[in-house]
Amino acid sequence: MLLFLVFIVAPFVAAIALSFFNWDLLTPAQPAGLANYAQLFGDRQLVHVLANTFVFALGSVVTHVAGGLLLALALNHVMNRILASVVKATLFFPLLISWAAVALLWKYVLDPTFGYIGYYLRQIGIPTPSFFADPHWALAAIIGVDFWHTIGYTLIIMLAGLQTVPRELVEAAQTDGASSRQVFFNVTLPLMSPTIFFATVITFIGAFQIFDPMQIITQGGPNESTMSVVQYLYLTAFQSFNVGYASTIALVVFVIVMGVTAVQFWASRRWVYQS
């Protein structure tokens, strides 16, 4: 309880307090009133990094949820046990590796000169950009790496969700002459909707706080095209030593995540199946 107070509640309150100060961690803190909040509105870089983060989060949610659902359905159809477990193992394993190792590895996997993915794509006639150096591709490349790293999590959730779809219901629908497409859209998908909803919320919350791959692979570049809002916060606090403004940005992140999550819950009443 005490630890909870010291390391979670107190910092939370302190972060709010800090957002009303200007402090460089060296000289005494100066009260700033609402200046940090006023600064938010004129901060074009903040708008830019928030846009990047939204694009990343959206890309991450779409690829993970759609990919996870399709893979779970496909794996459910695989009869060969060995194939199924090999596929699952390759999809789960990257989840266990730290972002640091994943980022260092993929930096070279997608390297324009000696990365093998670009090489094979060129061999089959697809021209490849230099993924992390091209401002139009860098963020998409990081979305791809993130997919490789964490699809296992979504897949586990989706596979567990599929287990909750009663087999009798699917068989009953098939008996009544429903095509497999009808079974999917009218039975499986509605019964999976709570799982899909959960995966969407969790993926969004995680993705909006993305930091590691940007920091390690691209340092936010090229041209700040991959700088995430958490990275901007980190740079503001620990490179520019503007702790007060960084706390204000942290609160903005918190409010956005809470807000989007609340909207998702509100919207879920329209599409998530409740038994």
Partner: peptide
């Protein structure tokens, strides 16, 4: 209160914890 804290990102508390 704790459940709300579940949604507080590390980035928000890390600055005060650093100062601490």
């Amino acid at each position: 209160t704790m459940l709300t804290a579940l949604m507080v990102p590390v980035q928000l508390t890390v600055i005060p914890v650093f100062i601490m």
